[in-house]
């Protein structure tokens, strides 16, 4: 039998435990609730729904792995996967090199430095819908400024309906994306360049290193971390891309510029194949999670992640 004092101690501990739990609930409760309701539950629902045939209204019919089997034979899905790869390659590398060159030019004090930086980054803050509509008229083969320019320099034969031809549609959108995000790469490289200690340059100057060598042998290799971050975040950005393609081509012509996201959108909200759209979403989600794990493991954000992963 416990004596009076011990029982009282238990009670106090119990109350303290409850108080602690209530307090903890106050801190994490609202965040965890919203996270569970709008992130975790939808992901579970997504996986569940990918095993059914359903249209969003009416009943759901269990069809097992049929939606996934369908993926294997879906040429649009394969085309979308190929386009994701092309999109990632032709967005990430041009914007990276251009961003690096711009950052090198802006790394040291220069007249108009802030103006250059402000203008070059500006496209990144503007809504992709607005950007899409502007570029639609830039690409206009009859009255657009790009066609005008090509005609005026005698390259009129190069003019075509860039967004309406299957061979050029995807690359025309990618060019817009590079325009939008180069300033972002530049800012990231500027941050990276600021991290190079002044002594490194001083030592190099004493060794008689010229400007070109300074850029290729010191600045570029010392920004390796930024480069890796840009590649991984670029892939993650590619997987999230939707608005620009939707506004410019809706994935057309004849699916030539289709990405996984536009394919999901068409299957789900145009064709009402919710089950099949869920299966594509699951694939996209898995690629996305793998990419963000890689990003955490191999870049700066890994500092916190390394303990967990």
């Amino acid at each position: 039998m416990k004596n009076h004092g011990e029982a009282r101690g238990d009670a106090i501990r119990k109350i303290a435990g409850w108080k602690r739990r209530v307090e903890l609930g106050g801190f994490i409760g609202p965040a965890v609730f919203l996270f569970a309701l709008f992130v975790v539950y939808p992901i579970i629902y997504l996986v569940y729904g990918s095993f059914f045939s359903w249209s969003g209204v009416g009943t759901m019919e269990w069809i097992g792995w049929a939606n996934y089997a369908r993926l294997a034979g879906d040429w649009i899905f394969r085309l979308a996967l190929r386009n994701e790869v092309l999109w990632a390659l032709f967005t990430i590398f041009p914007q990276m090199f251009l961003g690096f060159i711009l950052a090198v030019c802006l790394n040291r004090p220069l007249f108009g430095r802030n103006i250059y930086r402000a203008i070059l980054y500006m496209p990144a803050v503007i809504s992709p819908v607005v950007i899409g509509i502007i570029w639609q008229s830039i690409y206009d083969p009859y009255m657009g400024p790009l066609a005008d320019f090509l005609r005026s320099v005698g390259l009129g034969s190069w003019v075509r309906a860039w967004l309406a031809e299957p061979q050029t549609a995807l690359f025309a959108i990618i060019a817009v994306n590079v325009w939008k995000w180069t300033g972002w790469s530049m800012i990231m490289y500027l941050a990276g360049l600021q991290g190079i200690p002044e002594e490194v340059y001083e030592a190099a100057t004493i060794d008689g290193v010229n400007v070109f060598q300074r850029v290729t042998k010191i600045m570029w290799p010392m920004c390796r971390g930024t480069t890796l971050t840009l590649i991984l975040l670029g892939v993650i950005g590619t997987l999230q891309e939707f608005a620009l393609v939707y506004v410019l081509t809706k994935g057309g012509p004849n699916h030539a510029s289709e990405l996984l996201t536009t394919h999901i959108f068409n299957e789900a909200f145009t064709l009402r194949n919710m089950g099949y759209a869920s299966a594509i979403s699951v694939v996209l989600l898995i690629i996305g999670v793998v990419m963000s794990m890689l990003q955490l493991r191999y870049t700066g954000s890994g500092k916190t992640a390394r303990g967990v992963l």
Partner: peptide, 30 residues
Amino acid sequence: RFRGSSTLFLFMLMTMTLPVPAVVVPLIQV
């Protein structure tokens, strides 16, 4: 310190860069 804190954090890390278009189908149902 609380039980499940590292699990919660891992969940957050995994969904940090979740592509929104991948969850619109179930989200609209919710």
